[in-house]
Amino acid sequence: MTKKKRTILYIILFIAPLACIFLSLCVGRYPLPIGDVIKVLWCGIFSDGDAVPHIYQTIIWEIRMPRALLGSLVGACLAVSGAAFQGLFRNPLVSSGILGVSSGAGFGAALAILLFSSVAAVYPFALVFGILAVVCSYLIARLYSTTPAIMLVLGGVIVSSVFAALLSFVKYVADPYEQLPTIVFWLMGSLASARYSDIFVAGVPMVIGVVGLLAIRWQINVLSMGDREAHALGVNTMLSKCIIILCATLATAGAVCVSGVIGWIGLVIPHIGRMLVGNDNRVLIPVSLSLGACFLMLVDNMGRMITGSEIPLGILTALVGGPFFVYLLKKTKGGGWA
């Protein structure tokens, strides 16, 4: 890729999420004209004028804006942690949930709904159990003094299945008329309840995680050479691995606890990024961030518009992501993969 093309690509990737946010403000059950949306934004930022109907301001600032912002954050987090884990585990088929963070968070959320019959306790429970699951996977891998990647993945598989079983148990004992539907809908993933307070609470771990991964992203290249070679190249593999796992877990757990379990983004988005800019994580991680944010906002917009009631995000990302992934497997077979 020439330098000029690359610059253009970066500009596009920078503008695209902003454009998606703007699009999210316009579309929905109550479509707003572009001109009015601009007016509302202008007034909201620079003056308190009442040039547009009050209802427009409520829709944009209270409903669509927090939802778009949260969607972009969640999409970015899932995609970036997925890309980081794929590099760290040297495996293009892993995603952000590989160490059990999603299953742990899912169980935590279900437990909170079971115990308190309300959604208020869901965030802390989901966050704590998501992180706890990763800690368990890590401790399992620590049975081997060097924490090899394959043991981490194996630990993640074990922990995920244990939490999946626990989740089934919670569903089994939950009240089938009140609690069970809440649990099921939460697990399917949604941004419908997005409020600014969510962004501030869950945004902290998400931003810390993503910033950490952005900072350490070149080391992921070196770690993807395998522990032995990374060590011989002078990398403190234990420390780097810990930081990457910690950051990716914070980002994913933060995302899952506000949005539910949204699959596919952490798997598919990094691959789209690779097709666009190659495998260098120095470029791939920021590109995944931008693409993940755009993808989730677009899917969320689709979910809001296709039918009268909203389609849960987890369903749509899989329906869009699944066929795409098959196409990708077919396409990349000859594209340099060993």
Partner: peptide
Amino acid sequence: HERTFPYTVRQIVTMGRAAYLGLFEAP
């Protein structure tokens, strides 16, 4: 050497500089 991601040759060779770079540094 176990090959994984299709990095370019230049990217692979540049990894030889890792010992001179900090944790959060890039070449």
